[in-house]
Design a protein around this nucleic acid. Structure first.
Lengths: 155, 155
DNA sequence: TGACAGTTACTGCCTAGGCAGTATAATGCC
DNA sequence: GGCATTATACTGCCTAGGCAGTAACTGTCA
């Protein structure tokens, strides 16, 4: 409980907000990967699948914009997911530069379980929180993001 | 502003706490790396240097425990920092398995600037926050970590 | 129409993290 | 004192992300 006391003279990395954010995210990823282990999926692969499965993204560039990913990294990530048989790349009718991502039958079968994991993770992380506390947290994170990157609009 | 409404039936990844944590951390890393660019340091290299420089860690295994790092990854990360001339590996007097990490003259010269960056990052991210809001955030993140990993004690 | 800028997916090369296995050294136990 | 266990650093192999450059394609505008 010492973020407010962060000064160069008495520095400890544990007093840094960045440290707390990183560690919280790390714990989150650890739990998520434990849930994903039986499905033979990594956390990044899961994120892509749950987005493609939702029908809200169609092409790799959609995913990159939504998740702030590098397009080169996305190409290779999609390669691995495709190799596992959960998605398929098909041609885009109108724009021949684009690839259209589709769930395979195996992917569609997996999807409800992925949703369930997302819902359970949120429930578990926020156990014991009031609705007001959750809203406060979300607003706080938004404010931090605005402080850090004031110029472009947040996705 | 929809974390509380996360349900499988109306799923959007943006309603997930994991998404908000990941994005906030991503913005943090982006700003940090922009600060580090003139110093020719990556964010992981910075984290290690600021810990070694503080004198609170002595060996690679200390760093791994404090930062929850893999020892193999740490070996290679230290290789790169050593190649840049900011740290030095020396023998441990008592335990011949151990390596003792020391700042070089160049590392010691760099250190005050690293501290300054940490302090500025915190100030910037938390601009406009009251002391109470910051305490609430820190407690909230602690509660989430406890919810996620209830068994072992938090570092 | 044709040059040109922008977009999309991809590749190569770098840093990076996790896991399993290894060699060496320290520790604990009988 | 000798042997099993543990600890430390390291290596190889995998996934992963960022950056720069490329080829194919689209849209624009003179």
């Amino acid at each position: 409980m010492a973020i407010t006391q962060l000064k160069a003279s008495t520095f400890d990395i544990r007093d840094s907000l960045g440290y707390h954010l990183a560690m919280t995210r790390l714990d989150w990823i650890d739990v998520l990967e434990k849930e994903l282990k039986p499905l033979d999926l990594s956390a990044p692969q899961y994120i892509v699948l749950i987005n493609v499965g939702s029908g809200r993204v169609e092409t790799p560039v959609d995913l990159c914009k939504k998740l702030q990913y590098d397009t080169g990294a996305m190409t290779r990530l999609l390669d691995r997911i495709e190799a596992k048989g959960f998605i398929r790349r098909t041609a885009h009718g109108g724009d021949r530069r684009c690839v259209v991502l589709e769930m395979t039958a195996a992917g569609r079968e997996l999807y409800p379980r992925l949703l369930q994991i997302a819902v359970e993770m949120n429930k578990r992380a926020l156990k014991g929180f009031s609705r007001e506390e959750i809203d406060t947290l979300e607003r706080t994170l938004q404010r931090i993001r605005l402080n850090l990157a004031p110029s472009p609009s947040l996705p």
